Deep mutational scan, measured.
Amino acid sequence: TYTWNTKEEAKQAFKELLKEKRVPSNASWEQAMKMIINDPRYSALAKLSEKKQAFNAYKVQTE
């Protein structure tokens, strides 16, 4: 089980997950979700809006 003390740690864990699963920077949210949804870190960020925000930040960083 994973635990995160801060929102920032949770966001980092979520981005690490995207990186580890090699989600391409041109992937849509739907494509990315299919690649990461079974990992416990997918739940790091509770709100869908937070997940999408972190995903978009990840995409910008990896382009």
Rank of each mutant, 00 (worst) to 15 (best):
T1V: 11
T1R: 15
T1A: 15
Y2E: 15
Y2V: 15
Y2L: 15
Y2A: 13
T3D: 14
W4C: 15
W4D: 14
N5V: 13
N5F: 13
N5A: 15
T6Q: 03
T6D: 13
K7C: 10
K7A: 10
K7H: 11
E8K: 06
E8N: 06
E8P: 04
E8R: 07
E8Q: 08
E9T: 04
E9C: 07
A10Q: 08
K11L: 15
K15C: 15
L17V: 06
L17A: 12
L17E: 00
E20V: 05
K21A: 08
R22K: 12
V23K: 04
V23H: 01
V23T: 03
S25T: 12
N26Q: 08
A27E: 04
W29F: 10
W29A: 00
W29G: 00
Q31C: 11
Q31I: 12
Q31H: 08
A32P: 00
A32I: 05
A32L: 02
A32S: 03
M33K: 14
I36P: 00
I36T: 05
I36H: 00
I37C: 13
I37D: 09
N38H: 11
N38A: 15
N38F: 10
D39F: 01
D39I: 01
P40W: 09
P40V: 12
P40N: 08
P40C: 10
Y42L: 02
Y42N: 02
Y42P: 00
S43D: 13
S43A: 12
S43I: 08
A44E: 03
A44L: 03
A44M: 04
L45E: 01
A46G: 10
A46L: 09
K47G: 10
L48H: 05
L48G: 05
L48R: 05
S49H: 12
S49P: 06
E50R: 02
K52E: 09
K52L: 09
K52A: 03
Q53W: 08
Q53E: 14
A54W: 10
A54H: 04
A54R: 02
N56R: 10
N56V: 09
N56F: 11
Y58F: 08
K59I: 14
K59H: 06
V60M: 12
V60G: 08
Q61R: 09
T62E: 13
T62W: 08
T62M: 13
E63F: 05
E63M: 09
E63I: 14
E63D: 12
E63A: 12
